[in-house]
C-alpha cells in the first residue's frame, strides 16, 4: 500500500488540495489519516462529505511523542483496509522529519509496511515570506518534502514568488516546486513527480509537547447574528494564526475560515447543532481574555464557551 504525507502550515490549503484530489481521482481507493491540532475535528467534517475511509487523530501533532502511539495504531489499522493509497494530512504545526522512524515501527508492529512515496508540503504564497521567519515547523516541513506546492499564487507578486522559490531551494535544494491557485495540482502529476525522488534523512522531530500552540474551541448553542460574528472574527483575527469551523447564524449555517487578514464564509448545507470554531492563538494564553472581552465589549448576547 502506498503512503503519501501532506504537510503545510495552518491555512495554506491542505484540506482544499486534498478534497480536490479525492473528488478528481476515482481510479484509486484512497484512505486518509487526518491530524487535527485542536480537540475538535473540523477538517474531518469537511472531508467526510466525500464518503471515504477516514481516521482522525486530534489534540496535537501526530509527530509529538504523546500522540505518536495513536498515529502508529491508525496507520496499522489502515493497512488492513482494501486501499491503494493512504494520504496522511498532518496538522499545520507538524514537523514530519521523523516519519521514517514512525514507519519502521509500523512495520515492526504490523508485520507489513507501507511503500512510502514521500512528502508534499503546501505553502501559502501570500504569507510564506513572513511565516517562514518565525515558524520553525514550516522550515522543517519543506526540508523534509520531496515536493513543495506554492499555493494562492494569484495573491502574490511575481517578484515575491521568485523570492519564495529561492527561499524554498535554500532550505531544500532537491525539492520540486509546483505553483497553484486554489490547490489545483492533480494527484497523478504529484505521484509522477515524486516517484524515484530520494527521501530526506530522518531527524528528531521538533514536535515536543511544549511547542504546541494554544488552541481553543469557541462554542455557542444559540444562533449568532452573522454580521456580529463577522465583526467579532475581524476583531480577534490579528491575534490568531487560524480560525476555522462552523457558524450557526440567523442567516443559516456557514463554514468559517480565516487566516491572516482573509476570512471566508461559505454556506454550509448540512444541519449543525451549534457554532463550533477552532481558534489558534498567535498570542498564547492571552487569547482567552481577548475572546471573552471582545465578545462582551461588542455587546453580543449569545452565551459562549471557549476552552
Amino acid at each position: 500500500m502506498k503512503l503519501l504525507l501532506l504537510t503545510g502550515f495552518l491555512g495554506a490549503g491542505k484540506t482544499t488540495l486534498l478534497k480536490k484530489w479525492l473528488k478528481e481521482t476515482q481510479s484509486f481507493r484512497i484512505g486518509v489519516l487526518m491530524n487535527e491540532f485542536g480537540d475538535m475535528g473540523i477538517d474531518g467534517r469537511l472531508i467526510e462529505e466525500n464518503g471515504l475511509t477516514l481516521l482522525e487523530i486530534s489534540g496535537g501533532s501526530v509527530f509529538c511523542a504523546c500522540l505518536k502511539e495513536d498515529y502508529i495504531l491508525g496507520l496499522i489499522s489502515l493497512l488492513s483496509r482494501d486501499l491503494d493509497l493512504v494520504i496522511v494530512e498532518s496538522s499545520g504545526m507538524s514537523d514530519p522529519s521523523n516519519m521514517e522512524t514512525v514507519l519502521t515501527t509500523v512495520k515492526e508492529q504490523a508485520g507489513k509496511g507501507y511503500d512510502y512515496l514521500g512528502a508534499v508540503s503546501i505553502v501559502d504564497a501570500r504569507y510564506f515570506l513572513e511565516q517562514q521567519k518565525v515558524i520553525v515547523a514550516i522550515n522543517r516541513q519543506i526540508a523534509y518534502s520531496n515536493i513543495v506546492v506554492v499555493n494562492k499564487i494569484d495573491l502574490q507578486t511575481e517578484e515575491n514568488l521568485k523570492k519564495i522559490e529561492k527561499s524554498i531551494h535554500e532550505i531544500n535544494p532537491k525539492s520540486c516546486i509546483f505553483y497553484s491557485e486554489y490547490g489545483n495540482v492533480a494527484l497523478p502529476e504529484i505521484l509522477n513527480a515524486i516517484s524515484g525522488r530520494p527521501i530526506p534523512d530522518a531527524e528528531e522531530s521538533i514536535n515536543t509537547p511544549e511547542n504546541r500552540l494554544k488552541t481553543g474551541v469557541l462554542t455557542c448553542e444559540k444562533p449568532i447574528p452573522k454580521t456580529d460574528f463577522m465583526s467579532f472574527v475581524d476583531a480577534i483575527k490579528p491575534y490568531t494564526y487560524r480560525i476555522k469551523g462552523f457558524l450557526k447564524s440567523d442567516k443559516g449555517n456557514f463554514e468559517v475560515s480565516s487566516v491572516g487578514t482573509l476570512s471566508h464564509y461559505r454556506h454550509w448545507p448540512e444541519n449543525i447543532d451549534k457554532t463550533e470554531v477552532v481558534i489558534i492563538s498567535s498570542v498564547g494564553i492571552k487569547i482567552v481574555s481577548l475572546v471573552h472581552r471582545t465578545w462582551k465589549e461588542m455587546g453580543l448576547k449569545a452565551p459562549i464557551e471557549f476552552k
Binding site: G284, I285, K286, I287, V288, S289, H292, R293, I304, E305, F306, K307
Partner: peptide, 13 residues
C-alpha cells in the same frame, strides 16, 4: 499577568 487575567476572565465567562 496575562495568564492570571485569562483565568479570571474565564471564571467570569
Amino acid at each position: 499577568l496575562e495568564g492570571f487575567t485569562a483565568i479570571f476572565d474565564f471564571i467570569r465567562s
